[in-house]
Amino acid sequence: MIEVNQLTKKFGRKKVLDGVSFTANKGEITCLIGINGVGKTTTLKAIMGLTSFSKGSILIDGQKINKNMYEKVAFIPDAITMLPQMTIKQAMQFMQDFYQNWNQERATELLTFFKLDEKSRISELSKGNTAKINLLMGLAIDVDYILMDEPFSGIDIFSREQIADVFASHLIEDRGVIITTHEINDIEHLIDKVILLDNGIVLKEFNTEQMRQEEGKSVVDVMREVYQG
């Protein structure tokens, strides 16, 4: 379980996160939704130890982030994290060199799943394929948790579908997933839990199936209520 507790982060005087608390379970897909602001990405970066914060705590299975956590949690940012001159094959080799938990079999499977050629250069990939390679680099490490920042933003519909398909497949297995997004059309059926953020605070946290069963509301219904009053 990833526990975010009273997370507070300031940029200058502005509070980007103001006491954000939530949990994300293993085996579940948790979606951090925010209409505007940078709070979502900052939260993921804070979990990964890629930004400092002024208050609060973050625990991953009871532990603070440390170097060994990077074998346990993968972060997939909205920018590609490999060198442009590398081929996909070289990029995978780099990962294999540094991560004990790198699973080449799964990497190959993902390449096939995404219909990508390992001889392609990173710099030649389309935005959609870039997102897929990012996802591959995260999923092919045998991590327990995967954090994805805006995996669907700015990419073509077919790439979006393929990425959404991954969430329904055995490739995710029983890992915990946290996704940030500002639109959820592609994944509404797939997510277990929703956290609605706005101006650095959590407005609402709910389980999607429970919400449908008990109140007959879709995620978008709840978003409309919460954000538009």
Binding site: K67, M69, I80, T81
Partner: peptide, 17 residues
């Protein structure tokens, strides 16, 4: 700098920074 932020990868390597 640039479109590809390799710093992410380096900072997330499972090794002391």
């Amino acid at each position: 700098f640039g479109k590809n932020t390799f710093a992410y990868r380096l900072l997330m390597l499972p090794t002391a920074r």
